[in-house]
Design a protein around this nucleic acid. Structure first.
Lengths: 200, 200
DNA sequence: CGCTAACTGTACTCTTCGGTACATTTTTCC
DNA sequence: GGAAAAATGTACCGAAGAGTACAGTTAGCG
């Protein structure tokens, strides 16, 4: 039904759209821009995305969500000590700081991910997966003896995710990553507090 | 230069635009929509906003930012005990939950506030003012003896703001306010932790 | 009253951009 | 090698929506 050549073209279109959106935002990105950047024409775009723009945006959302999660995975699997958690935090903060307003995660949650209910579902799913991975990290750290038994893993994982989202949100507004850093710091402190107890 | 009648019309336009944007988002809101809802015509819109759409969006951003801050102020001034902080948290969570995706704060930081550098500056300013008020609340609570001397007021205030932003961000994606609640809870716990110490 | 400036209604222009039609080329596969 | 399907190029359409022109009306003010 679709040849390797076709698949490559489709991918080129998605990547071009993602790049364009990262650089200039979703509203400012037109189909003609995407075609120009990917070296294709409208006919091909509509060949691979019969539902047009909306379908393309959804594909971009999925593409970026996957990328964000893949970037995280290596760190998430190693969360078992305070050192590991801090390395993870540093990685996130640094990446976001470097990429600034073109940070894929930020673009995802604040821009592309809002243009349709379907896209929103993708970002919601990303949040869910990410939070589950963080939760697993908390359990692993507890198993390794780094965290007391009283800490509520679910709620803390939720707080960590919220800190990231908030930090990125502020980053997009102000251009500064300090909020992200501070909020994550506070979460880590809570994780490893001597008197850890259920939140709330 | 502008009569009371004119000022009233201008205000009607801004309010109509704000409502329209809250309900359907910035991209979906057209100038014709705004005219229809405000019972005016294009000539009036361009009379009061010669720079057109962009200028109107900026006015809406300022309008909503002011509203958000005004809603907060009564609570912010009374922050001096854990009870007061919890009342504040409950107020925020409840308001956001009720308004859901039409929450002015959410719309502000995730939608209108992104459409121009000028609008971005307005939201940045809101964040700054808000954080300063939270910081003042921390100091007041400390003065009342509710918080130890070691807690870093600046960084904690930043973390609180980040928690709100993140919570609202998740709310817009998932429709659930639990992340907001959990993140704020964690911040309050940190604020009133017996062994409060500098973050980081 | 009457002049001026602010205010408002109607009708139009002009561009942008998503989407389509259709002809043409390339690939696949028997 | 040749038919069928996939892939691509070019030219176009139509709607939407921001912004304008201009005429007409209302309100302030001496």
């Amino acid at each position: 039904m679709t040849t390797p050549k076709g698949a490559a073209t489709r991918l080129r279109i998605v990547e071009a759209a993602a790049a364009e959106i990262r650089e200039r935002g979703t509203i400012a990105t037109t189909l003609d821009d995407v075609c120009r950047r990917s070296g294709t024409g409208k006919s091909q775009l509509f060949h691979y995305f019969p539902q047009g723009r909306e379908q393309l945006l959804l594909a971009v959302t999925e593409f970026e969500a996957e990328r964000v999660f893949q970037d995280q995975e290596p760190y998430l699997h190693e969360l078992d000590s305070r050192t590991a958690w801090e390395a993870w935090r540093d990685a996130i903060v640094e990446t976001c700081r470097d990429q600034g307003p073109h940070c894929p995660l930020g673009v995802l949650i604040a821009d592309v991910g809002r243009y349709s209910p379907a896209a929103q579902a993708v970002t919601t799913q990303l949040i869910r997966r990410w939070q589950a991975a963080v939760r697993a990290g908390i359990e692993a750290t507890r198993a390794a003896g780094g965290i007391g038994p009283d800490l509520d893993a679910d709620r803390t994982a939720a707080a960590v995710i919220t800190a990231i989202q908030g930090g990125v949100s502020v980053l997009l507004s102000t251009g500064s990553a300090t909020h992200l850093e501070v909020a994550l710091d506070l979460c880590l402190d809570h994780l490893f507090a001597a008197n850890a107890r259920p939140v709330g």
